[in-house]
Amino acid sequence: MVKVYTITSCPWCDKVKKYLQSKGVEFEAHNIETNEDDYKECLRISGDEMVPVTTIDGKNFVLGFDKAKLDELLSA
């Protein structure tokens, strides 16, 4: 399952979600401002507090809204 880590009012998070939707990719969105477990997990994956973080396996991830990198992640 594709996971997208987000915060509230984050235009780039919305863009990632819309892009995944447009490609018909199912995903779970996790808000790291409202859920401490999600926050810790996101911090573990990326090592920082920046979002959006998109990941499938919890190891490889894409930071920010980058279509090319997202495509690469999804096709791996």
Binding site: W12, C13, K15, I32, E49, M50, V51, P52, G64, F65
Partner: peptide, 10 residues
């Protein structure tokens, strides 16, 4: 162009 946001201001 920066395409991310921060949870905190750091």
């Amino acid at each position: 162009i920066q395409t991310f946001c921060r949870r905190n201001y750091g």
